[in-house]
Design a protein around this nucleic acid. Structure first.
Lengths: 110, 110
DNA sequence: TCATTGATTAGCGCAAGTGTTAATTAGCAG
DNA sequence: CTGCTAATTAACACTTGCGCTAATCAATGA
């Protein structure tokens, strides 16, 4: 299994994807805050966090008894680069204007 | 499971990722050509193709006894859009110049 | 019709993933 | 030291995923 497939595997679970998206929106969060996001038990969340960490998606900061998690930008970058590597295929078949506008530095308004 | 997690799950296998990348590089291919790419049996490849098709990543064209597969650009677009939706997080923490250059229409030289 | 070829589906076994509750580890406060 | 809290790990059950071989389905050609 490559880094890329491991990354995709880590994101191929609704709970884990939610955790990653939440951390991207809200920045570093303690495990307790993340456990409260879902209906599943705390140990289950802890294991999902471990999967994400071992796949390189999350960084863990230890402070006392608390563990603070944050998304590693490199992981997102890995996915982004993969799509970019193949954009000659998919972007050529679609309207690429949206993509260009979305990545234009002048267009940062959301 | 959402469309996005299903897409990630489909890409979270080295065999399937290889199939998708091969099809993006070489365009539409018959199942026979794809079966020859790996060491696993033809039925196993057929099943991977089914997973990819049901996840919306591949299109299947039937012609006689032959099945021709190709990547659906929309699927790649889904992944690309996801990274773009969160670029405020990951691109801000890294050197964004690479990404912008990579997507600049003038920079298509690879 | 019948055999051949391309491709898929069926059935089986085994490994991996995900949930639970219970137990454990580690830090902090008294 | 003892208890409390945050978080993880252990143990178990169940489900899903992936490989194989055998069987089936569909189109083609003698």
């Amino acid at each position: 299994m490559t880094d890329l497939t491991r990354t995709f595997a880590a994101l191929a679970d609704t709970t884990r994807l939610s955790l990653v998206e939440y951390l991207m929106r809200n920045g570093e969060q303690p495990a307790s805050a993340l456990a409260g996001l879902t209906d599943i038990s705390a140990p289950a969340v802890s294991r999902h966090l471990k999967v994400l960490r071992e796949a390189g998606l999350l960084h863990q900061r230890v402070a006392g008894t608390h563990r603070y998690y944050s998304v590693r930008p490199e992981a997102m970058r890995l996915v982004s680069d993969w799509t970019i590597d193949h954009r000659a295929f998919w972007a050529g078949s679609l309207d690429r204007l949206d993509t260009l506008l979305a990545l234009d530095p002048e267009g940062e308004d959301e």
